[in-house]
Design a protein around this nucleic acid. Structure first.
Lengths: 132, 132
DNA sequence: CTTGACCTTCCACCGCAGGGGAAGGTCTAC
DNA sequence: GTAGACCTTCCCCTGCGGTGGAAGGTCAAG
């Protein structure tokens, strides 16, 4: 199958496929006599794996790592579990951070409605944002 | 005050200050005869505002917008309130998204412990990540 | 034979918020 | 007078996940 067809079937672009190959996420496919890439069905499986891993929030670098581990040392289950644990911890931290930020934004928003606009002196840019 | 001193007092770097000036977040300061930047105390206030706005999750582009609005049309309270509302909505969406992702990662992690590693066939990269 | 769709490589660019370092000028202390 | 700390402008680099376009080759249809 040619690159355009694979891209369409996988719901991505030819650009992305070449990028994945360059990033060692996709193995370099066969080439036709004229140099065109010629994929088989396994490429589609690989792309589904990549999409799934991305949907789980793994970076392409992590996906490449899992694939390389698989090729060198067999099924990377432990590796993947560790990656997912790390990812979960990242997410917890990030969510907590965003919740704090959300509260802060809400507080500032409340200031914007309750503060006297006349107090918006010429001295500062905006009294809603605390300067300090 | 020279740029190094301002940077130190504001808890930032000279690189960042020149970048802010270029991005119209800081007004271009006086220059000494030899071309050195020469800041007054108001620069410090401005930097505190920038830090506060950044802490509220506004991008530098948004901060620049608020500053420009302030210079052209006076106190930008309404503008700032709208920005904060948008920011809060962004945060809500982002937090919801991350919570879903967190749940998904947890589900996959559970698969990693409950699935039979022997089922990790040679056909796919990793059976923990659903392919499709 | 030519048009148009497809393919190849390579190089550059996006946003974000600066950081790194070169080449050269200046200021202060010894 | 000279060393070292500071300043200037300039351009390139980072990470992430690709996208855009130029220059040229190939393939099928008309």
């Amino acid at each position: 199958m040619r690159i355009g067809e694979l891209a369409e079937r996988a719901g991505t672009t030819t650009k992305a496929l070449r990028f994945y190959e360059q990033s060692r996420l996709l193995p370099a496919p066969q080439r036709t006599r004229s140099g065109y890439r010629d994929y088989d069905e396994s490429a589609l499986d690989r792309l589904r794996f990549i999409k799934g891993a991305q949907a789980a929030g793994l970076t392409l670098a992590e996906v490449a790592e899992v694939i390389a581990a698989r090729e060198h040392t067999g099924p990377p289950c432990g590796h993947v579990a560790a990656l997912l644990d790390a990812r979960a911890a990242d997410l917890d931290a990030r969510i907590a951070e965003l919740n704090l930020l959300r509260e802060e934004v809400q507080r500032l928003r409340d200031r914007a409605t309750t503060l006297d606009p006349a107090a918006c002196g010429a001295d500062a840019v905006c009294h809603v944002i605390p300067a300090g």
